[in-house]
Amino acid sequence: MDGEKAAPAAAPATPLVLHPAVAPLSYLLGTWIGQGEGGYPTINHFSYAEELHFSHSGNKPVIGYTQKTWKLGSGEPMHAESGYWRPKPDGTIEVVIAQSTGLAEVQKGTYNAEEKVIMLQSEIVGNASKVREIRRLFELVNGDLRYEVQMATNTTNLQPHLKASLKKL
């Protein structure tokens, strides 16, 4: 080892310390993958594969969120969105999401930590020429993360748009 320095030993990984506001939703943290289906009165029915990722740095009351979908057969990308979820100790939650289509959402809602249910309602839907309202329901059922999205446009009332079931990796 003439003149060579030994590489420093890697520091042991420290476990993530959850911010107290994030702890009730810690079951979301990680990567989820599965399949979904969608449609709308103005859109033909379709199926897709999906990956959701929820992350937390430990120092702020925020959960990072990313989502991407692709066509089942070809793997061709379909949709992507990202944002931040801010749970509050009183069971309310604020969410901001930017979609790859240019649409931006500000949502507010509630979560039930015991039943593992999150309900979100759009407060603002920005940069959308047609979309006027979005509702999202997430629930953990037998270990699967399931969600449903409803949407209203300028010409339709609130109606089912998407639903999926995802397993944690």
Rank of each mutant, 00 (worst) to 15 (best):
G3V: 09
K5F: 06
A6Y: 05
P8V: 12
A10N: 01
L16E: 06
H19V: 08
A21P: 00
V22I: 10
L28W: 02
L28S: 02
L29W: 01
L29G: 05
T31F: 09
Q35I: 02
G36R: 04
P41G: 15
N44K: 15
F46T: 14
Y48M: 14
E50Q: 15
L52N: 10
H53N: 08
G58A: 08
Y65V: 07
G73E: 15
G73F: 12
E76T: 10
P87I: 06
G91F: 13
T92F: 04
E94D: 12
V95I: 13
A98W: 00
Q99M: 04
G102D: 03
A104M: 14
V106Y: 06
K108V: 11
G109R: 05
N112S: 14
K116S: 06
I118A: 08
L120C: 09
Q121N: 10
S122R: 04
E123Y: 10
V125P: 05
S129F: 03
E133D: 09
R135G: 04
R135S: 02
L137T: 11
E139N: 11
D144S: 13
D144I: 07
L145R: 05
R146D: 00
E148H: 03
V149P: 01
Q150D: 12
M151T: 11
A152S: 10
T155V: 14
L158H: 10
Q159A: 15
Q159V: 09
H161Y: 13
S165M: 08
